[in-house]
Design a protein around this nucleic acid. Structure first.
Lengths: 339, 339
DNA sequence: ATGAAAGCGCTAACAT
DNA sequence: ATGTTAGCGCTTTCAT
């Protein structure tokens, strides 16, 4: 019995199911996607037929017809840190419960590549887009707007999102941590990332400087350094800073991993933390807690960011009239032994 | 000038492009996807028109017609570790270069959920599937087979893959590390994960036991413990083991993170590593190298696993006659200070 | 080199 | 409650 195997895939389609169930394709379709519209008996027959033939619906066709997919695109600078995966898990938890799946693309630090990914993803007509960034090429912004689908930007709190925005404020977080540090230490340095076209690293630097100024301290350029985004720099920069500016007694790292690297380097060199040098990071995870004496950090609720992004997106997917939203998920200074 | 905006999306389709370029939709389509079939002049006109109207192709329609998508599904137990993201980056690097995008789904430890994801992904008619697991429900295996698309299973080297298999051998890796340890230590314990239906954790345990037996040592059940897959257990289990079996002088952790946790706990308690207790882990990353005295581990080339999975998959996507493949990417004992 | 017709597999809209 | 018709946006196939 060979029931209408679709040409290419070898899979049986809705017509095959319909045939087996002895109904029209339309009824079969309804029985599966809107069961309440179909007589209980028919429903059962169709469901059994579907199971019997191993029906795998073709969502390409379904989506083309319905003008809506069950796909959300996620465009993110990098997956290579636990911070990113926490956000993704938050997003996924919410979307998966609704049968929506994630298409994920990574673009590093190149806005052009981000634009390319956005373009490519839109070609699949996703129901929504989550952009882990708030800076885009003009062309990317334009095409996203034209697509007319809900979009959530995360990673930074901004004034004028493309559509919706769920984040903490990098500026406020860096400022708060700097305020915390300068209350306790005399000379607080800041180590951030050298990434062009990235408002997050820029805002952190601004937050640091603002806190210093507000406290009437001078902002010493020698105490603000930018390092490349790669591994194995936290340890090096720690050593360099301590040599170049021996009077520095605290360092605020605008990232999680470089702070961990610096702390570990202190073990290695027997540098007393926080006695000789206090250390703090931005973004928290297990490691910060475990590594003695505990790394003082700004905890960002990444999973919550993901969850709320997805929830907001869903609301706007379900109801085209739902207004864009802006959510500040906040942050929290987690005081541990290192500062 | 309102050129054939598609009803739902507000985007202009191939017909709009064709109209602007003054050619038929078919010619426009060709000019964009198979430019060599079109006169240079026409090609230019169409390309300009496409740019002018901000053409975003509808790949749902394209795929429905061509019977092929530019999507690969990745089904993975968890994203919540750097190990997973390394694999993904390897995969993505290869696929992205070919304009193929990843649909990613996470299923935890539930095979039923994996089946669900596989089913859901197949509905998008992906060009291929990468499964970060080698154990599946019979129904999942069946539906994958019927789909008739190339599939790569990773995470463990197995005898009879659904289709293709790229991995290291968990058994061999655990055995090798155990052999290394028993050459140096008298009583080597093993800490693995308690995950039902997971051949990877099982094979690691088997590898450990096999090495002991081969060396003529007894396998003491009290020295083989299974812990739940979550954080904050490496430190606890270390302490428990040392108390319960004080003569243990080495512990092999069948995972990366629990080994790190245990090592850090040793700092905290002033336990000498490897003097009092030697520690080793399976799967390596930066942290293992940095944390003094350096964590001895089995390095798994995760990024390479990802790359080769993707490359193999591509080969089979491009050429339906290309045979299934099995690739052992191997592993390497990285000897550091901890053991 | 270009175009017209037909169809991918499904579902919205409109019968009955 | 069920069936029929038409069409989603693109590309294959078959003219010309």
């Amino acid at each position: 019995m060979n029931h209408k195997r679709s040409r290419a895939s070898g899979l049986i389609g809705i017509r095959g199911v319909a045939e087996v169930a002895g109904v029209s394709p339309m009824t079969a379709s309804r029985a599966l996607s809107r069961p309440e519209l179909v007589a209980a008996d028919t429903r059962r027959k169709v469901q059994e037929a579907a199971k019997a033939v191993g029906y795998v619906p073709n969502r390409l066709a379904g989506a083309l017809s319905r003008h809506r997919t069950h796909v959300v695109g996620l465009v993110i600078p990098t997956l290579q840190n636990l911070i990113a995966t926490e956000t993704i898990q938050g997003i996924n938890a919410v979307l998966d419960a609704r049968g929506i799946h994630l298409m994920i693309g990574e673009y590093g630090t190149s806005l052009a590549k981000e634009e390319e990914l956005i373009h490519a993803f839109l070609a699949y007509r996703p129901s929504g887009l989550i952009l882990q960034s708030t800076v885009h090429t003009p062309a990317a912004a334009e095409v996203v707007r034209r697509a007319g689908i809900p979009v959530v930007e995360t990673g930074n709190l901004i004034k004028a999102p493309l559509d919706s925005n769920v984040s903490f404020s990098n500026y406020a977080a860096a400022k708060a941590m700097t305020e915390y540090l300068i209350r306790r230490y005399r000379k607080v340095a800041y180590v951030g990332f050298a990434v062009a076209e990235n408002d997050r690293t820029r805002d952190r630097r601004r937050g640091y400087a603002a806190a210093l100024r507000a406290a009437g301290r001078t902002v010493d350029p020698a105490c603000m350094v930018d390092v490349p985004v790669r591994r194995q720099v936290g340890d090096r920069i720690l050593v360099e800073l301590l040599q170049a500016q021996p009077d520095i007694d605290a360092i605020f790292f605008g990232g999680h991993w470089i702070a961990v690297e610096a702390l570990i380097e202190c073990y290695r060199r027997g540098i007393d933390v926080p006695g000789r040098i206090a250390l703090a990071g931005l973004d928290d995870n297990d490691l910060s807690e475990k590594l003695p004496p505990g790394l003082t950090t700004v905890r960002i609720p990444r999973a919550e960011m993901g969850r709320r992004s997805a929830e907001g997106l869903l609301k706007r997917i379900d109801d085209p009239n739902a207004p864009p939203f802006r959510i500040d998920v906040g942050f929290e200074i987690v005081r541990r032994g290192s500062a």
